[in-house]
Design a protein around this nucleic acid. Structure first.
Lengths: 167, 167
DNA sequence: TATTGTTATACTCTATAACTATA
DNA sequence: TATAGTTATAGAGTATAACAATA
């Protein structure tokens, strides 16, 4: 009878057209929806470039310079064993290469190939364009305010753990 | 030497502590970061409840009422074959059940069990709390403005296709 | 002992294609 | 023919655990 009594649209992450459309959204739901839109854009552009989303992410991280496997695992928030497979697939496609690290014979350095650089740049161009487009419905001053709020939220949560300068 | 020339932090979706921290972020990067934070919250709370994120999403969608397989597939933006497996796993854990639809002998209706309802409600409570918490660094009036902007962005993109009233 | 990376195994999620049954 | 759902197969992504080599 009233299955909807306890659960609102809030937690319907990424669910597209939801059964509760038409009601005003609460803050949590709005955040979820924005998140969905951003992820969808990322996924769609990845696909357009023939890359699984995580591979696109990998290329973009490596565009800043070579990284070690463990460093990448921390950066992605996954186990190191997952990185082995991730890098395997990227290497198989010619986007990255593993090379030894002088001074630590256990370590490997993952580097973008020139093909990987091209793929990363092409992906980035498209993604940045579409994401920036997202703010176009806002008036310039509103856009400023929105970004200020966004920055405040991000600063409060995403505490970066000073990355190693390696590379 | 300058691998970072072409690709900015923008497209580093979900990359956690990025190599470019400390520089001011552009709008696209901010959107990506917020998206990462929201998804991380969802994933973490799903895990806390012993659910893969997509399973949590399924429970929350079904909390509004039963849905057909094809309806769920459209809602999730995946192929119907993927739904079969998704519902299989949820059914195996006792969260949902399939039942016939009178009037269309091809169709199945997926319904939350009482166990599924409890899981959905518990998950939702946690998720809504943490997501709303995200806006706490904003002053009340800023929060209003932020949500207004958010709503405008969402309205411009996420065009809901009036869902079937079925249930 | 701790760290770096790999292998082995298993599970979830997804796509594609071929199939059945019903509309 | 079109739609609802399943099965089969393949692949990506992830976790855990056990392992090797090095620090």
């Amino acid at each position: 009878m009233d299955e909807s009594a306890q659960v609102t649209a809030t937690t319907v992450v990424d669910a597209g057209p939801s059964p509760s459309m038409g009601q005003p959204l609460d803050a949590a739901e709005e955040l979820i929806q924005l998140s969905r839109i951003v992820q969808d854009i990322h996924a769609r552009i990845s696909q357009r470039h023939g890359l699984p989303p995580v591979q696109a992410k990998l290329l973009c991280v490596l565009a800043f310079g070579p990284r070690g496997m463990a460093e990448l695992a921390r950066c992605f928030g996954v186990e190191k064993a997952a990185l082995t497979g991730l890098v395997d697939r990227a290497e198989r496609r010619g986007f990255v290469s593993r090379s030894p690290v002088t001074g630590d014979r256990r370590a490997l350095r993952v580097t973008l190939t020139s093909s990987g650089h091209r793929a990363a740049a092409a992906f980035h161009t498209d993604a940045a364009a579409e994401l920036n487009q997202l703010l176009s419905p806002l008036a310039p001053s509103d856009r400023e305010d929105f970004r200020t709020a966004l920055a405040k939220i991000i600063a409060t949560r995403g505490q970066p753990h000073s990355p190693t300068e390696a590379g």
